[in-house]
Deep mutational scan, measured.
Amino acid sequence: PQECLLLEPGLNEIMANSLDYNERLWAWESWRSEVGKQLRPLYEEYVVLKNEMARANHYEDYGDYWRGDYEVNGVDGYDYSRGQLIEDVEHTFEEIKPLYEHLHAYVRAKLMNAYPSYISPIGCLPAHLLGDMWGRFWTNLYSLTVPFGQKPNIDVTDAMVDQAWDAQRIFKEAEKFFVSVGLPNMTQGFWENSMLTDPGNVQKAVCHPTAWDLGKGDFRILMCTKVTMDDFLTAHHEMGHIQYDMAYAAQPFLLRNGANEGFHEAVGEIMSLSAATPKHLKSIGLLSPDFQEDNETEINFLLKQALTIVGTLPFTYMLEKWRWMVFKGEIPKDQWMKKWWEMKREIVGVVEPVPHDETYCDPASLFHVSNDYSFIRYYTRTLYQFQFQEALCQAAKHEGPLHKCDISNSTEAGQKLFNMLRLGKSEPWTLALENVVGAKNMNVRPLLNYFEPLFTWLKDQNKNSFVGWSTDWSPYADQSIKVRISLKSALGDKAYEWNDNEMYLFRSSVAY
């Protein structure tokens, strides 16, 4: 590609939709070469300064400071330590791993069909083939991996386009969902002041979706909304933040926050679980009234959910574990990228498509890292959202599997949720969690119950496949010279610098 592309739109479109291996590689590498390399010296300084700040406030390091958001002291029976968070994340991840490994094996087999000769049947997945710029969410792999393609499509993007949905309609439908469970409408100022579409040439905007509580009843969302099912669900997520903000607005200023950061992320995700169900999509006209649910549509639905929800958990866990180790000084600065990709291979089963030396800073190419967000919130929120969903479905008197529950129109479920939201940070999160779900610790069981039918199906699908991955295989081993030459021509001086062995191999191949 010759034109100058922004991340959004532009590069993200390539990473969402392109099936051209080399075009995807160009976009993936260009973003890291342009952005990651510029941020490397800044990120090194950032780590030093943030650690100084944390230690001045009596924390061991900046990662310890972040984990302090979960700490509860002096509340008998509800205490929770920063170290306990690490333990809980690690042991819940071990419980999730078998499901993830089977999802990984299934996706690898489907990617082998889409990119023959580029995928190893026992290796890691190349990082640039996973549906977005970071491989964070695998949602866009659904069209390549759908188990029963002859069934009606449960990705309702086409239906939204056919019905001329726009950003306003998407957010109005999200608002209807919250109102149906007894939560309030958005304010008039929300509709007047939010930026729900890309302003285009009028001004440059950071398009990463964010929710804003500017105080004095001024709530806004910034999002360059596209007419897709993914953005339909994202709208519910962002509006969930606003509902939380509005619910605790009466609290004293210092207590106007989520019980912990994971709670804030979980609220909209609960609504997304219901909004994505075929039952709900039928009720708002995005699935045909004669759409029939059966075992095959159930597996299609659960796989689509797993690509988004299960596929991202190792990504989140590994990223934050790397940062915690960096802040603690356990990874020397001259080994940041080496350790990043070692951990990516070992924990996530994902491999870099071309080698990256220590001039890169791949983590900082992600919005949340370069903008100083702690990231473990996206792991804890996933466990909380299924715990909350299970409890709210019980309040809504849902009968049947958890993945079929739609809590819309249940004011009982809405009241149970609101009673927790309005507390803000005035009560320990362990107590707030217990008030809703009857337990005071994160628990992976509801998530595993939700995906149980899919897990059973995946194990059957993978019975003749290798489950797990070898960390030795690299996608650039066989194609390295071709890849390096093409990237050198595209990126010039910003391309990865060849070492002596690679230059010798190149000259030998040319001479041959």
Rank of each mutant, 00 (worst) to 15 (best):
G215A: 13
D213Q: 01
E261V: 06
Q188H: 13
H264P: 09
D213E: 11
H237K: 13
K304Y: 10
I309Q: 13
F219E: 00
Q188F: 09
A249F: 01
E261S: 09
V206E: 04
G217P: 01
W212D: 02
N140Q: 10
H208T: 12
G217H: 04
L233K: 08
T308H: 13
V206M: 07
E265G: 10
E269C: 08
H264R: 09
T234H: 11
D218K: 00
Q305A: 07
R220C: 00
Y373Q: 09
A249L: 15
W212M: 03
Q251G: 04
G189M: 02
R256I: 02
E261T: 08
V206D: 08
F375I: 10
N140K: 14
A250V: 12
W212F: 04
P252F: 06
D372H: 10
N153R: 10
Q188P: 15
R136I: 11
T210Q: 05
N153H: 07
E192P: 06
R220E: 00
K216A: 00
E261Y: 08
F219M: 03
P209F: 03
H237N: 14
R220N: 00
E265H: 10
R136M: 13
A250H: 14
N153Y: 12
F219A: 01
E192K: 11
E261N: 11
F219I: 01
F137W: 09
F301M: 08
Y378N: 05
V206A: 07
M229F: 10
G215T: 14
N140R: 13
I309P: 01
L233Y: 10
E265Y: 06
H241P: 01
T234G: 06
G215K: 15
F137V: 09
E269G: 13
H208V: 12
S272P: 07
R381G: 15
D218N: 04
I309R: 06
T187C: 06
N193D: 04
T139Q: 09
N140F: 11
H368D: 09
N140M: 11
F253A: 04
S374R: 09
N193A: 05
H241L: 14
N140C: 05
D372E: 09
T210L: 06
R381W: 07
N193L: 15
N257D: 12
R381V: 07
Q188A: 08
L214A: 07
D230I: 09
G217K: 00
K304L: 09
G215C: 13
N257T: 07
Q305L: 04
D218V: 01
H368F: 08
N257G: 09
T187R: 03
E269Q: 14
Q188W: 03
E265D: 07
T234W: 07
H264Y: 12
Y373N: 11
N140H: 13
M246I: 08
N153Q: 05
N153L: 10
Y378T: 12
A250G: 12
D372N: 07
T308E: 09
E261I: 06
E261P: 08
H241V: 13
P209Y: 04
H237I: 11
S374I: 09
D245Y: 07
K216S: 00
N193M: 07
P209C: 05
T210K: 13
G217Q: 00
F137G: 07
M229C: 10
F375N: 10
F367A: 09
K216M: 02
H264G: 12
K304V: 09
T308W: 08
F301S: 10
H264W: 07
G217T: 01
W212P: 00
F375L: 08
E261D: 11
K216C: 01
H368R: 07
L214N: 03
G215W: 03
N257L: 10
N153V: 09
H208K: 13
T210A: 10
Q305T: 09
H368T: 07
G189T: 02
R220S: 01
G189P: 01
M229W: 11
D213T: 03
R220Q: 02
D218E: 02
H264M: 05
R377D: 11
V206Y: 07
T210D: 10
H208G: 05
G215M: 14
R381N: 08
A250T: 09
K304C: 10
K216V: 00
E192A: 13
N140Y: 12
N257C: 12
L214R: 00
M246H: 05
D218P: 00
L214T: 00
W212V: 05
P209M: 02
H237G: 11
F301C: 09
Q305W: 04
F253V: 03
L214E: 00
R381Y: 04
P252W: 05
H241S: 12
L233W: 08
Y378D: 12
Y378K: 07
M229T: 10
V206N: 08
F375C: 07
T210R: 07
A249M: 12
T187S: 14
D372K: 07
P209V: 05
H264Q: 07
T139L: 09
T139S: 08
F301G: 09
D372L: 01
V206F: 05
T139F: 08
V206H: 07
G217M: 02
Y373V: 11
R136L: 09
Y378V: 11
T139W: 08
H208N: 08
L233P: 05
A250N: 13
F301V: 09
D372I: 03
H237C: 12
F301Q: 08
K216E: 03
F375P: 05
Q305K: 10
R220H: 02
T187Q: 13
E265F: 12
D230R: 10
A250R: 09
H208E: 11
D230P: 08
K216G: 00
R136F: 06
H237Y: 10
W212N: 01
H368C: 08
E265C: 07
S272R: 11
Q188L: 08
D245I: 15
Q305F: 04
T234F: 10
E192D: 13
Y373A: 12
N193C: 01
F375D: 10
R381S: 10
H237R: 11
N257W: 13
P209D: 05
T187G: 05
K304H: 11
D230V: 12
D245V: 14
D218R: 00
F137N: 08
N257I: 13
G189H: 00
R256A: 14
D372M: 02
F219R: 02
P252D: 15
P252V: 03
K304S: 11
D230C: 13
H237L: 10
M229P: 05
Q305C: 07
K216F: 02
H241R: 14
A249G: 06
T308S: 10
E265T: 07
H241M: 09
D230E: 11
T187I: 08
V206K: 06
Q251D: 00
S272F: 07
H241Y: 08
G217N: 01
D230G: 11
K304I: 07
T210V: 06
T187P: 15
N140S: 10
H264D: 08
I309E: 04
D230L: 10
T187Y: 04
N153G: 11
H241Q: 13
L233E: 08
F367L: 09
Q251Y: 00
N153C: 12
R381A: 13
R220G: 01
L214C: 09
L214F: 15
R220P: 00
W212L: 02
S272G: 13
E261Q: 12
I309C: 12
T210M: 10
R256M: 14
N193Y: 15
P252Q: 06
R381L: 06
H241T: 14
T234S: 08
Q251N: 07
Q305D: 10
F253L: 05
Y373H: 12
Y378S: 10
R381D: 02
A250S: 12
T139M: 10
Y378C: 06
R136N: 10
A249E: 05
Y373C: 09
Y373R: 11
Y378Q: 07
D213P: 06
R256V: 02
S272L: 10
E261L: 08
N193H: 15
M229A: 11
I309A: 13
Q251I: 03
Q251P: 00
E265Q: 10
M246W: 01
M229D: 13
N193I: 04
S272M: 09
P252I: 00
D213F: 13
F137Q: 12
F375K: 04
K216T: 02
F137L: 12
K304N: 11
P209G: 06
R136A: 08
N153W: 09
R377P: 12
P209S: 09
H368I: 08
H208M: 11
